Computed example of a mutant assay.
Amino acid sequence: MALNLVTGYKGRDHITAEQWADFNRGIFGEAAILPVGNKMAVAIQTANQITVKDGVAVFDGREVYIGYGESENITIQSGTQGMQRRDIVVVKYTRNEETGVEEVAFEVVNGLPASSNPEDPVYQNTDIRTGVFVSQKPFCRVRINGTAIEGIDMLVAEKKFKTVAFTGNYNDLSNRPALKAVATSGSYNDLTNKPASLPAEGGNAATVGGKNTETLQNYNNLTNKPKLGSAASQGVANNFTTNTAGYVADARTVKQLKDGLSAKIVSESGNISFKDGGNGESYGYITIPSGYEMLAVYMQEVSGNVKLRCKGFNKNAGTGGYTVWLDFAINSNVFMHWIYAKI
């Protein structure tokens, strides 16, 4: 079976390094240095030595690690006076062809000296996931000028995770949307898109701007009013008997109807005994309660019986039972599912 459950209990050791590596690769990509410790920073020690500090990196999902307080020294071949060279430090992955044991180690791939514009050497950067036995993952470039190390270029980017503000101040957020200003002084005059006029003293005045309060209190006479949908002017029906146009159903009524329908539809399953009926067919019997009608019958997939298919079913008069047909001759139990409803 190609599909496997990885993060689940199986009663035995079953999670493989390959599965875990694929999970890491989906999160971190092909290569990344994680924000842990000194992030595998590289420092120049002498003309012939660099040091990689502690941290964690991931290559094709394989996690490599230098523990806290530890570091690793790497020897660099001496340069030539008047010449330049580019060396590539790689993380060399190997898998033993006989035992399958996997290992990693730093390795220096030397470039060719040149008087100017030296080129990077060729290295074997193959996808570990394909099952290779050796792969060289580029880690950093060492630039050598004469007999000195001129500089180091990291070839693996740090995986940076987005941060969020924890101060409670909206202005601390990055990429925040531009919000429109609203009135905060409590003055009606600070509002934008406000109606041209309102009834004076909360609607107690006789007229405002030549309009009486009855006119102003009519929704249709308001300016800048929102556009309402057609449902806003409909009545609400909270029963199952209303059949007049101009009403919308109460949500509680709709739920009650749905619950009632769900209670009338039944799904069952179990082993059904089938017998050879001739002509390359088999038949079995399913009985359902009185007052119900069969809606559908389908079968559980049976490994190896790729030709076994449910052909159909028919009701047996006066018995409340149904005959189910398979389009394959068989004399055994088959796990079936059937759905029936109260009519």
Rank of each mutant, 00 (worst) to 15 (best):
L112W: 09
Q45L: 10
T213D: 09
P35A: 03
G203D: 05
F240R: 06
A47N: 07
V182I: 08
L228V: 11
A183P: 08
A341W: 08
I74M: 00
C310K: 11
E293N: 14
A231G: 12
I128Y: 03
M83G: 08
G235P: 04
N314K: 15
L257G: 15
A183C: 10
E214I: 14
N110W: 13
V90N: 01
F133N: 14
T80R: 12
A296D: 11
G8Y: 15
K160V: 05
G82T: 05
F139Y: 05
E107K: 08
Y247H: 01
S185W: 04
N117F: 11
Y65G: 05
A105I: 07
E150F: 15
L34P: 04
E158P: 08
N316C: 10
N24D: 01
V36N: 07
I288Y: 01
L155M: 01
M299P: 08
K53V: 06
G168D: 00
V248G: 05
P199V: 07
N279Y: 10
K160M: 06
P113T: 02
E158T: 13
N4K: 15
T130E: 03
I66H: 00
C310P: 09
L155C: 00
K92P: 06
Y68C: 06
T242N: 07
Y247I: 00
N193D: 12
G270W: 01
D87Q: 04
K275W: 14
V109D: 05
F23V: 09
V132G: 01
S332Y: 07
G235E: 06
P138R: 03
V306M: 15
P195W: 06
R86L: 10
P118V: 04
V297C: 02
F133K: 14
N220F: 15
G246L: 02
D259M: 07
N117R: 08
M336P: 03
T7D: 14
E268N: 13
Y9K: 14
I27V: 07
G111P: 00
I76K: 04
T215V: 13
A237L: 05
A2N: 15
P113N: 04
V254P: 04
D87M: 04
A105Q: 09
E281S: 10
I286M: 01
K311I: 13
D153R: 09
T207A: 07
S115Y: 10
V52S: 00
I50L: 07
T94F: 02
L295T: 13
I339R: 08
V108S: 02
V334S: 03
G209W: 02
H337R: 10
G69N: 00
Y68R: 05
I330P: 03
G284A: 01
E98Q: 14
N175F: 12
N221G: 04
K162P: 11
F274M: 06
I74R: 00
K39R: 10
A205G: 14
D190L: 02
E97V: 12
I27L: 06
N169G: 09
